[in-house]
Every structure is written in C-alpha cells, then in structure tokens.
C-alpha cells in the first residue's frame, strides 16, 4: 500500500529522509521537523549534536517531561525496522499522556555523534510499512562536500559549512539565511511569479532585495542581477557598522513552475562570479 504513494526527499541541517509526498511539513525549526497527514501530526523528528557521552535515559526523561509527564514504556521495534537501524544505537518506546500517544525511537549515530528522536504519532497497520521505508532512507549526516536543504518545493545544495541562521516560510514567500565562512547567503522563493510580475518588471520587483546595489545589465529577460562593490569610504563605513560591504543578488524566473527564485551573497569581498553561478545552479524549485 505504501509503495503506491509518491514520496519526496527532505534535506535539512544535514539530515536526509524521504516522506510520503502528501505529508505536510507543519513545523520546521533548525533542529526539528513535524509532519502532518490529514491535518493531524503523523511524524516528528528532532536531532542534536552530542558533545560528551550519549545518555539515552537523560534524553528520554526530558522527553517525558516535555510530554506532560507522559508514561514511557520500552518497546522493541519490529524486525523490519531494526534492519535499517544497524548504523545507530537505538532504543524504542511507547508514550501515552494527556497530549496523546504514539511510538518513538531514540537513535544515536556514532559516526556523526548525532542523536535523533523520532516520534510516530499513529500506529495504524497501513503506516508501519511507510515508517519502515522512512527509516530505510534516514541519514543522520549527509556525506560529501554538499548538503541538501529541501523542504516544501525548494531544493538547495550548499557547501557543508553553510549554517542556517534564519528561515521563514510564508504563503508565497520563503526565505532562508545561511552563514558561510565568507559571508552570508540568502535564498528566496516567491510564488506565483505570473501574478507578482503582472504589473512590474523583475528588476522592479527585486529592487528591495537588492537594497541599493546597482542593477547589472543581463541579456536574459527572465533574470535580473545586482551588484554592490563600494569604494573605500563606503566600504570602511560598512565594515565599521559591522555589515557586509559587498553583495551580489540574482533573481530568476522559472515560468514552468510559476516561481521566482533568488540568491543574495553578502560579504566583505565580492563573491567570485563562477562561485555565485555555481550556487545559483544549485538552487531549484521542484
């Protein structure tokens, strides 16, 4: 039954997983994801980097407290699930309290030193195979030099050093701000592009995001780019204010998706054109 459903990939803070496409991310925090199905919580995932020794009891005690002194009982996950948990130290539990009940797993990945707390809010027979597939694809830490940030309809591949500092998902407007060793990087997604650009050009639409940067002439009508590379006086003033002096901004339209995507790179030096191009090429809307 679960196999017939469409699935989508979620990437967030190094975590990689797959969930049914009709599960809606109802809460997205830097270290927490909650999914809903038919307006009801179905699955939540929370994670933390462990600095010292991993102590499951302490974490479960905190969970119990956060669930309003819910009753936690040990639980052995089914064999099918355990097959996918070989790379983790795992501990299963049932919880029951005033706020509801469900099944959970506390996982610890030795390699990445990350603890993951999975909460399954329902235990219908039909969901068991879905949870099993979810576990089969769960990664505590993405490998390689890039990290996928993919939620809702956006997908961004960024260098592994990128740290999410702010994010907002408003209807029609998404914004993710990352900190990189060289400066700041902001990703934008606006929808529906056709309506937003009905009475104004892309450059007029993006002027607020460009924040005073100069419009750069481009041949592509579906793209607008701005650049700010101030002279010494303004550069020094920006540095004294503790603000990044240089910025490169690009907005581009994907008409087939009816979306405007954007990227703003800010730093004390102008980002190299080929690096900015590579970053833009790694941002897309699904």
């Amino acid at each position: 039954m679960g196999e017939e459903r469409a699935w989508r990939r979620i990437g967030w803070d190094g975590i990689l997983l797959q969930v049914p496409a009709d599960w809606h991310p109802a809460a997205v925090y830097t270290d927490y994801l909650l999914f809903e199905e038919h307006y009801q919580p179905v699955f939540a995932l929370k994670w933390q980097q462990i600095k010292g020794r991993f102590e499951a009891e302490g974490i479960l005690k905190k969970l119990q407290k956060s669930l309003g002194r819910a009753e936690l009982t040990p639980w052995q996950p089914p064999t099918g699930w355990r097959l996918h948990l070989k790379s983790f130290i795992h501990q299963g539990f049932h919880w029951q309290g005033a706020g509801g009940k469900g099944t959970g797993l506390l996982l610890y990945c030795r390699e990445s030193r990350r603890a993951l707390l999975l909460q399954f809010y329902r235990a219908d027979e039909s969901l068991l195979s879905i949870f099993e597939r979810l576990l089969a694809n769960l990664q505590a830490r993405q490998q390689g030099e890039k990290r996928l940030w993919s939620v809702f309809d956006i997908a961004i591949n960024l260098p592994k050093e990128a740290q999410l500092t702010e994010h907002e998902f408003l209807p029609g407007s998404f914004r993710l701000l990352f900190k990189l060793p060289e400066g700041k990087l902001t990703f934008y997604r606006f929808k529906p592009a056709a309506e937003l650009l009905r009475r104004q050009s892309l450059s007029a639409f993006g002027s607020k995001i460009a924040d005073g940067a100069a419009l750069v002439r481009t041949e592509n009508p579906l793209q607008a780019q701005w650049q700010k590379n101030p002279r010494s006086g303004h550069y020094l003033l920006a540095r004294l204010r503790g603000k990044p002096a240089c910025s490169t901004v690009r907005l581009w339209v994907l008409p087939e998706k009816n979306v405007i995507l954007g990227l703003k790179a800010q730093g004390n030096r102008l980002i190299a054109a080929h690096n900015f191009e590579a970053l833009c090429n790694n941002c897309t809307a699904c």
Binding site: A27, L34, H38
Partner: peptide
C-alpha cells in the same frame, strides 16, 4: 534536546 515544540491546532476545527 527535547524542548517546548508545540504541535499545531487540532485537526477537526481546521477541517470544519
């Protein structure tokens, strides 16, 4: 690790 993350409003109201 566990903190005060709240779930969203109960379903039936929104559905109604």
């Amino acid at each position: 690790m566990i903190s005060k993350k709240k779930t969203t409003a109960p379903g039936p109201d929104r559905q109604h």
